[in-house]
Nucleic acid binder design. Structure first.
Length: 656
DNA sequence: ATACGATTTTTTTTT
DNA sequence: AAAATCGTAT
């Protein structure tokens, strides 16, 4: 292959560079994915075997797409190349060596919802009543633990720094976390953070495991390095110690995940940690017009801590970005949708347009307006397909089959039956847990008496349901198991939900998705790690992504994507930057990076909107001011006076 | 005492 | 949309 024809000189340098540690600082739209893809292809071309390469990416989808292209470029079978998120890679290692740490092979992966519920049950088991006592919710406590694990700080420090108002109950929090840890081990389950942490433990405390993997991976490539946590960086350092062929790619200006422990210093300090490293900068932007790039450069220039870089535009001039103040939230939505209609009329496909926002619930009004005007759209935020209650209910039955001691799955299933609430579920779980085989215990004569009197009927039904599902189920494909569960779950579904039919369709979709898995365990762990609406729809129905829809997404989920026209809504002070996020130490700079990520998604047209009034939250008097990130652009920067990089549109009919 | 249904309040970002 | 709250039913 002739690499020169497909790459610019900087990209070529990164692709052709030999071994050793390399840091690639890749600005937005500079062809980062392309560079990584070609480098993997180049390595394979040069005879590196697929099984000796590790590619860590931010989403499994990104890995899949990159590897698909590598396969197409080289014609080499890349099935043995390890690619995916840190979490899925960890899962791959732990399915094999988890037993070393005391896990059995069918361990469950707890998602954030399971985690929160399990912590909540720890809280109530400790006899703490959250109604009478002001006490953090389960998700907060889980956050504290996750942050602690990911950053290597102890619980005390995390509470003091991030949740000082809960410092008074630090002791209880620590006790709860100890109980939570025990529960996880007893129920053979790991949460997202355990996956990472346990991988690291395997590598750092078990020399034979380290030797195997550090020996295996001759070339390691890490994408989105700016968003890796301390633990993730440690894992990479351990794996790369042997061959030292490590390429990390990232853009410090786009680090937006500090809330989940991403460590900005990983990328800033890389040259110090690897003194022999080379730094390659990709500063040519192929995506956006000079007008959009100029605005983005001006904005990010206000951040102190960063690698200095200036994105050069190669594209021709386009319209200036536009600021549109609207009277209120509804007017903001109707402006956006009206403008979308104009663009569609001009011939732009709907899939070339995105509406971005800081938080899921910001999309409500735009959603309603798009629906009202009959414009097809796709929401990439909010509850994901696999996180919907009915999907999780169904999966809980399957989880029990794979891991009969899965406490959160049992409690979820128990709660589906009449007159079984949290208390009864807890009581019955204790009964089941004491048995050798919890599923068999369901069929014992006395089982329905494990709860109170009221719950007997429900528990009898549960027992019958499981008999129906499990009997002669050995060797059945996953889809048949789903059928069996569904026929027992259907009555509940129809009783509880008015839109039972559409929920049952979701389950049919899940069944379709399940056919590509040969084992129930693989199916379940993929579900836990691949919780993305688009991915689910994509996998389940071929037509999903091909359809022409306007995309609604959080800025976080828009990372790495691009659209000809981008609307950023709710650009008001308090929303971007989000007031709560400013309380963090580097809050403002991270919020500015988020703003930067949003701006650099746009290729041709960029619109900022904000409502002047918001009745719903009457903070102050209901008036909102434009985001500081917009206001500061009007002012002259460090290099002196400059014209405002955006224009302002007044909406006549919206003036107040 | 517990479960459940109706009503009100709140909502950061994700593997 | 989900969680918290409150009153009623079991």
């Amino acid at each position: 292959m002739n690499y020169e024809d497909h790459l610019n000189p900087d990209q070529l340098q990164a692709v052709m560079a030999g071994g050793g540690p390399i840091l690639v600082i890749a600005g937005a739209g500079s062809g980062k994915t392309r560079t990584l893809t070609y480098r993997v292809a180049r390595l394979l071309d040069d005879g590196v075997r697929p099984e000796n390469i590790l590619l860590a990416t931010f989403t499994n989808k990104a890995a899949g797409e990159m590897l698909f292209r590598v396969g197409a470029l080289t014609g080499i079978d890349i099935a043995n190349l390890w690619g995916g998120t840190f979490h899925s890679l960890a899962n791959r290692v732990l399915r094999r060596y988890g037993y070393v740490l005391g896990y059995r092979p069918g361990y469950t992966i707890l998602d954030s919802d399971d985690t929160e519920k399990l912590v909540n049950s720890c809280i109530s088991e400790m006899g703490i009543d959250r109604k009478t006592e002001k006490f953090p919710r389960g998700n907060i406590i889980a956050d504290i633990l996750g942050y602690s694990l990911n950053t290597g700080q102890d619980i005390e420090t995390v509470v003091l720094k991030r949740y000082p108002y809960f410092n008074y109950c630090l002791e209880e929090i620590i006790k709860i976390l100890a109980l939570y840890k025990k529960k996880k081990l007893d129920s053979n389950s790991m949460d997202f953070d355990d996956l990472l942490f346990n991988w690291k433990v395997l590598l750092s405390s078990y020399p034979l495991v380290l030797e195997e993997y550090a020996g295996k991976f001759r070339h390691i490539l890490v994408d989105e390095y700016q968003d890796t946590s301390r633990v993730q960086a440690d894992i990479i350092d351990l794996l790369a110690a042997r061959h030292r062929n490590l390429m990390v790619v990232g853009d410090d200006s786009q680090s937006i995940y500090s809330f989940r422990g991403a460590n900005y210093d990983n990328i800033l300090d890389f040259p110090q940690r690897y003194p022999d490293s080379r730094i390659i900068k990709l500063e040519t932007n192929y995506r956006s017009t000079p007008e959009i790039l100029h605005l983005a450069n001006r904005s990010i220039d206000r951040n102190e801590r960063q690698f200095h870089k200036v994105l050069r535009a190669v594209r021709g001039s386009g319209p200036r970005p536009v600021l549109v103040p609207a009277g209120n939230v509804l007017q903001q939505a109707s402006f956006v949708v009206q403008r979308v209609i104009d663009l569609l009329r001009d011939g732009l496909p709907a899939s070339d347009i995105a509406v971005l926002y800081r938080a899921h619930y910001h999309s409500m009004e735009v959603q309603m307006e798009l629906a009202r005007r009959g414009i097809p759209f796709e929401i990439r935020s909010g509850i994901r397909f696999f996180e919907q209650a009915h999907i999780k209910d169904l999966i809980a039955y399957l989880r029990i089959i794979v891991n009969p001691r899965d406490e959160s799955a049992w409690k979820r299933v128990l709660g589906l039956y009449a007159r079984v609430g949290p208390k009864t579920a807890s009581k019955v779980w204790k009964h089941l847990y004491s048995k050798e085989d919890p599923i068999k215990a369901l069929f014992e004569d006395g089982f329905p008496k494990a709860g109170g009197k009221g719950a007997q009927e429900g528990l009898t039904k549960l027992s019958a349901a499981f008999r129906d599902i499990v009997e002669g189920s050995e060797g059945l494909p996953v889809s048949s198991l789903i059928d069996r569960v569904l026929s027992n779950y259907r009555a509940f579904l129809q009783h509880k939900y008015t839109e039972a039919a559409s929920r049952e369709e979701d389950i049919e979709q899940l069944k379709g998705f399940s056919t590509k898995f040969s084992s129930l365990g693989d199916f379940l762990s993929d579900l836990a790690l691949l919780t993305n609406t688009a991915a689910a729809g994509d996998e389940a129905s071929e037509t999903y992504l091909k359809e022409d829809r306007v995309v609604l997404s959080t800025v976080h989920q828009a990372k790495g994507l691009e659209w000809p026209a981008v609307f950023l809504i709710w650009c008001s002070e308090g929303m971007i930057p989000l007031a709560r996020a400013l309380k963090d130490e580097d809050g403002e700079e991270e919020e500015r990076r988020l703003f930067y990520v949003a701006c650099t998604r746009a290729k041709d047209e960029l619109y900022f909107c904000y409502p002047l009034m918001d009745y719903s939250r009457r903070m102050d008097n209901g008036y909102l001011s434009p985001s500081r990130f917009l206001e500061e652009l009007k002012m002259s920067d460090s290099r002196g006076k400059a014209a405002c990089p955006y224009e302002r549109w007044g909406l006549k009919e919206f003036e107040i």
